[in-house]
Deep mutational scan, measured.
Amino acid sequence: GATAVSEWTEYKTADGKTYYYNNRTEESTWEKPQELK
């Protein structure tokens, strides 16, 4: 299949934890999204 550009962006909180934000759905998660595995 075609490689889609991930909708997920990786961010870090002030205390250094990583989370992921989906630009399309406006969803955020602590877990690494399936698309990034």
Rank of each mutant, 00 (worst) to 15 (best):
T25Q: 01
T18G: 02
V5H: 14
G16N: 04
T29E: 03
Y19G: 06
W8R: 01
K32L: 09
K12S: 07
T3S: 14
D15M: 04
W30M: 09
R24H: 10
K37N: 14
W30R: 06
N22F: 00
D15T: 08
Q34D: 15
V5M: 12
E7Y: 07
E31R: 04
E35T: 05
A2Y: 10
S6F: 07
T13S: 07
N23L: 10
D15S: 07
T3V: 11
N22A: 00
K17F: 06
A2G: 12
E35F: 08
W30Q: 08
A4G: 11
G1V: 14
G1Q: 13
T25I: 01
Y11G: 05
T13F: 03
T9H: 11
A4K: 11
K32T: 09
V5D: 12
G1F: 11
Y20H: 00
P33N: 02
Y20W: 15
P33Q: 03
E35K: 04
E27F: 03
W8T: 00
E35S: 10
T9A: 11
T29I: 09
A14M: 08
Y19V: 08
S28A: 10
S6K: 08
S6A: 09
T25F: 01
G16P: 00
P33F: 02
R24E: 09
K37D: 15
E10A: 05
E31A: 05
K37G: 14
Y19F: 11
K37T: 14
A14S: 11
T29Q: 12
T3Q: 14
E35D: 11
K37L: 15
E27K: 07
W30D: 09
G16M: 01
R24L: 15
E31W: 05
K17M: 07
E27N: 03
G1E: 11
E31Q: 08
T13A: 07
D15V: 02
K37A: 12
G1T: 13
P33E: 03
T25G: 01
K32W: 04
T9S: 10
Y11W: 06
K12Q: 11
V5Q: 14
Y11T: 06
N23M: 10
T18C: 13
D15N: 07
T13D: 14
G16Y: 01
Y19K: 05
N23W: 14
E31Y: 07
Y21L: 03
Q34H: 10
P33G: 02
T13N: 08
Y21A: 01
Y20V: 00
A2K: 11
A4T: 14
A2I: 13
S28G: 11
T9M: 11
E31N: 05
Y19M: 09
G1Y: 10
T13I: 01
E31P: 03
K32R: 12
K12G: 02
A2Q: 13
T25M: 03
Q34L: 12
A2L: 14
Q34P: 15
S28V: 15
Y20D: 01
T9V: 15
E7Q: 06
G16R: 00
Q34M: 12
Y20I: 00
T29K: 06
T29H: 05
K17I: 07
N22R: 00
K32E: 09
K37R: 13
K12H: 11
E35L: 04
Q34R: 06
V5G: 11
D15E: 09
G16K: 00
K32V: 12
W8A: 01
D15F: 04
E10I: 07
W8S: 01
E27I: 05
W30K: 05
T18K: 07
E35V: 06
T18P: 05
Y19N: 03
S28L: 15
E27M: 05
A14L: 09
Y20M: 00
T29G: 03
S6D: 10
P33K: 01
T3R: 12
A4Y: 04
A4V: 14
T29R: 15
T29A: 07
Y11P: 00
E35Q: 09
Y11D: 03
A14K: 12
A2H: 13
G16F: 00
T3N: 13
K17P: 01
W30V: 07
Y20E: 02
R24A: 11
E10P: 04
Y20R: 00
V5K: 14
L36D: 09
E31M: 05
Y20T: 00
S28Y: 15
E35R: 04
L36H: 09
G1K: 13
G16W: 00
A2S: 13
E7I: 07
E7M: 05
Y21H: 07
Y19A: 05
G1I: 14
T9L: 10
E7F: 08
Y19W: 12
E31D: 11
E31F: 08
A14I: 10
N22V: 01
S6N: 12
G16T: 00
T18M: 04
E27R: 03
K12T: 13
Q34I: 12
P33W: 02
E31H: 06
S28K: 15
G16A: 01
L36V: 09
T25H: 01
Y11N: 05
W30Y: 11
A4D: 14
